[in-house]
């Protein structure tokens, strides 16, 4: 009795899966019949997208193993270039030297904004672009000069070759160097922790990483968000890339196509970025 019931339910479930799969898994079909392992490393902004995609692919086809590691843009180039991983992620376009040395191919898949951030308890909610430049250059050193509390401004920055730094520095700071005494933070995640712990902090990070623990500052009245980045009113944006050494292998090819597919675009937007389609 139980057995027939079990069979019945399995049958219903199978039927349901059969009906539903063309809708749900059309984009995953490309992984049918593939197997092997795929290693991904590099930019920290990419990780939420890579992890979600990897999870869906591995539950669709358990014969595929995907590992996702961070490290940063530099690690992404280095590891993909040396053939240590199949896909190396970067938060900036590759430099000429990097393309020349490693023969890497880039796949642009998302747009990400970089926003100035502060502690959620800070009463300042927006600044003029020039004020932000003055703060990061060390010409404005106290919050009361920009309408905030009577406290010193604690400037947090990123290392110069970071993808996040490059876009913020190039598009908002007009390529002016950040004051030498600024604390330099090693990743987007660490930046969020540092700024959320310091009531007088100002820093900058990828819009996709921003949550309630930090507050994005409006720039010239425009609040940085996915919407304002798409319609072009918030200009401090960059592209996120996946890179392979030469032509991608079949599995890497399928992964890249999946990220660029409709379902992939859904994952990209859910992670807070704007898909490139």
């Amino acid at each position: 009795m139980l057995n027939t019931k079990g069979i019945f339910f399995t049958g219903v479930a199978l039927l349901f899966l059969l009906c539903a799969s063309p809708l749900l898994a059309a984009d995953l079909d490309r992984f049918e019949g593939l197997e092997g392992s795929l290693d991904i490393a590099g930019g920290t902004a990419h990780i939420p997208v890579m992890n979600e995609a990897a999870k869906r692919i591995m539950s669709f086809n358990p014969k595929i193993r995907i590992t996702v590691a961070g490290g940063g843009t530099g690690i992404g180039v280095q590891k993909a270039g040396e053939g240590l991983v199949d896909i190396g992620n970067t938060g900036r376009a590759l430099s000429k030297e990097e393309v020349a040395k490693f023969g890497l191919q880039s796949f642009d898949f998302a747009i990400d904004g970089v926003a100035p951030i502060t502690h959620p308890g800070n009463p300042v909610s927006g600044l003029a672009a020039q004020q932000i430049r003055d703060i990061f250059a060390g010409r404005i050193t106290r919050w009361n000069e920009v309408g905030g509390p009577d406290a010193a401004i604690h400037v947090y920055g990123r290392e110069e070759a970071s993808g996040t730094h490059e876009v913020f520095w190039g598009k908002l700071l007009n390529k002016e160097a950040i004051i030498g005494s600024a604390n330099i933070i090693q990743s987007n995640g660490a930046m969020k922790v540092a700024v959320s712990q310091d009531a007088n902090a100002i820093g900058y990070m990828s819009i996709g990483h921003i949550d309630d623990s930090v507050k994005a500052l409006a720039v010239n009245g425009v609040t940085p968000s996915q919407e304002t980045a798409v319609d072009g009113s918030y200009p401090v944006v960059r592209h996120l890339f996946m890179n392979t050494k030469g032509e991608p292998k079949p599995l890497a090819r399928a992964f890249i196509d999946y990220i660029l597919s409709e379902e992939g675009a859904g994952i990209v937007s859910a992670a807070g970025y704007i898909p490139v389609r």
Binding site: T73, G74, G81, S95, R158, E159, A161
Partner: peptide, 13 residues
């Protein structure tokens, strides 16, 4: 070393 390796790969510095 950790900071530069995490961000850069090929430039002079």
């Amino acid at each position: 070393i950790a900071l530069v390796v995490a961000t850069d790969s090929q430039s002079t510095f």
